[in-house]
């Protein structure tokens, strides 16, 4: 019997190695697998490369991981936000490496990894500082740059619901990078608020099929006003 449901976030993350590349879902505060990140901090892996759209907010999630000194390099599109002071200080002190990637290229490079694509040409970034040093080609009269896949050793994603085969559904804009990251890592760990019986997820509505998911772990729901109201309705 296939059972991808892990008993705890600690068990789900037990085998993460030092030096790993970890894809972390989330855009701003939506879709951030905070419980998995907290467990990763407790687990102690260091010298990590983190791939995330942002570079952490406040002192939770990715920012907490940065603050704990576990991250060597961050690959992201938008590190500078109103409360990204943990990253800012590390960056200014030269204690973290930044690889800035246009957001669509970041996403597509992970898609390529998951899809077995060796590299691709994109018009994004052509002629800019972020395209510098890359192979270029004119295609249909438009300049393109060659981009390579980003593969993760581990992906940490947040979904709403999952089953023991690893099928996942998400909630609203918290979906963001989740499905792409799930496909792009050797080991994908999904935190969910609900685990359901096989067959409970409508097969027409499964967003991430379980083939892309290694472990599913249930975490307690943090109630937020609108969600509570929606469930009561």
């Amino acid at each position: 019997m296939i059972d991808k449901i892990a008993p705890s976030v600690e068990a789900a993350l037990a085998d993460v190695s030092d030096g790993s590349t970890i894809l972390v879902g989330g855009f701003g505060g939506a879709g951030v697998p905070e419980e998995l990140i907290d467990a990763l901090i407790a687990q102690g892996a260091r010298d990590l490369t983190i791939v995330n759209n942002n570079a952490g907010n406040g002192e939770v999630g990715v920012a907490a991981l940065l603050k704990a000194g576990r991250v060597r390099k961050i690959v992201c599109s938008y590190p500078r936000t109103a409360d990204s002071y943990v990253f800012d200080a590390l960056y200014r002190a030269g204690k973290i490496e930044l690889d800035l990637v246009p957001q669509g290229t970041l996403s597509e490079r992970m898609r390529a990894a998951g899809a077995g694509i060796g590299a691709f040409y994109t018009p994004t970034g052509y002629g800019t500082d972020l395209g510098k040093g890359k192979e270029t080609r004119m295609i249909d009269g438009k300049g393109h740059v060659l981009e390579y896949p980003i593969r993760g050793d581990v992906a940490l994603v947040k979904a709403e619901r999952g089953d023991r085969w690893g099928n996942l559904v998400y909630r609203k804009s918290a979906r963001n990078f989740g499905p792409t990251m799930a496909s792009a890592a050797k080991c994908t760990i999904a935190q969910v608020y609900e685990t359901v019986e096989l067959g409970a997820l409508d097969p027409e509505h499964v967003v991430t099929p379980g083939i892309f998911v290694t472990r599913v772990v249930k975490v307690p729901r943090k109630k937020q006003a609108a969600q509570v109201r929606e469930q009561a309705a």
Binding site: G28, P179, V207, Q227
Partner: peptide, 27 residues
């Protein structure tokens, strides 16, 4: 009071979805 932290815009501010709207992943 009706903000939903799972429904935000590119500026990370709470928004709403119009009837007929859709969600999809980043790629």
């Amino acid at each position: 009071g009706l903000e939903d932290l799972d429904l935000i815009n590119a500026g990370k501010e709470p928004v709403t979805l119009l009837t007929g709207g859709a969600y999809f992943h980043h790629t």
